[in-house]
Amino acid sequence: MERSALYWRVVLLAAPVTVFAVLVIWPLFSSFFYSFTNWNGFNPEYDFVGLENFAKIGSDRLFIGAIINTTIWMVAAILLPTLLGLALALLLDSKVPGGPIFKTLFYLPICLSAVVVGQIWIWIYQADWGLLNTVIRAVSGSSFNYAWLAKPDTSLGSVIVAWSWQQTGLSMVIFLAGLTSIPNDLLEVCEIEGASTWQRIRIVLIPLLTPATVVVVALSVINSLKGFDILYIMTGGGPFHSSDTLAMHMYNESFKKYLMGYGSAISVVLFLIALTIIRIYFRNLKKVDEIYG
């Protein structure tokens, strides 16, 4: 019986492990392998170039730009949905009229695919007839037709706004769940002691929302690292690389310039960055676990 159970465990685990190995482990090691070659993606023949691709990274000004953009993207993609989600959760938890409707409305964008969200915001940002410029024209009375996604100064920021709009609903729901687990006694004590709303939030709610915050930040980090699709749809890294992140730069070098070896080297660097961030996160998660059980 015991052996039979073990047999079925192995059999049933074989399928997902095989899929994981083929779709994740194999490409991961392939990337490592190709990062030491000059493969162009088409030609079956290639040469080993040692660390040449990694050396090239240091002098690639587009890579430097992509590192800066990735940092901006990650910080903004973590901070904005977290802060906005917390603000909305606190607001909706205070029993505002129509709360359930607002909760549904704010959560709705997370149900949409990045392609749909990207397309909606492309229309909003459209220079001639987009919603944003139409509103600005109506308010200011000017002939404002700024091309938000086509200008290097605003392209990345515009995508971050769209991304935050989609992700905020998820943070809000997690914070709302966290708020329901806070004992009412504590909130009543605050009221009896005459604490102001800000004091209640700062001293009681935010510290007790730490476990929820950890989950929100973790999801934001993971989602921001995966946040390639919306950038691809909205700007494709443009105009002229002004919104390139590392993932986008890797894609462009591999699939547009046909420099698969160099693209693989960038993906290895991206992997190491992600690994470092995740290690830091897990170390801190352990500390939070020790404090909050």
Binding site: K151, P152, P239, F240, H241, N252, K256, K257, Y258
Partner: peptide, 17 residues
């Protein structure tokens, strides 16, 4: 060649800006 074309195509866009 395609890798060079990528450079030039982005150059045109930067020039228009």
């Amino acid at each position: 060649p395609p890798p060079v074309a990528e450079v030039g195509l982005s150059m045109f866009q930067e020039f228009m800006e």
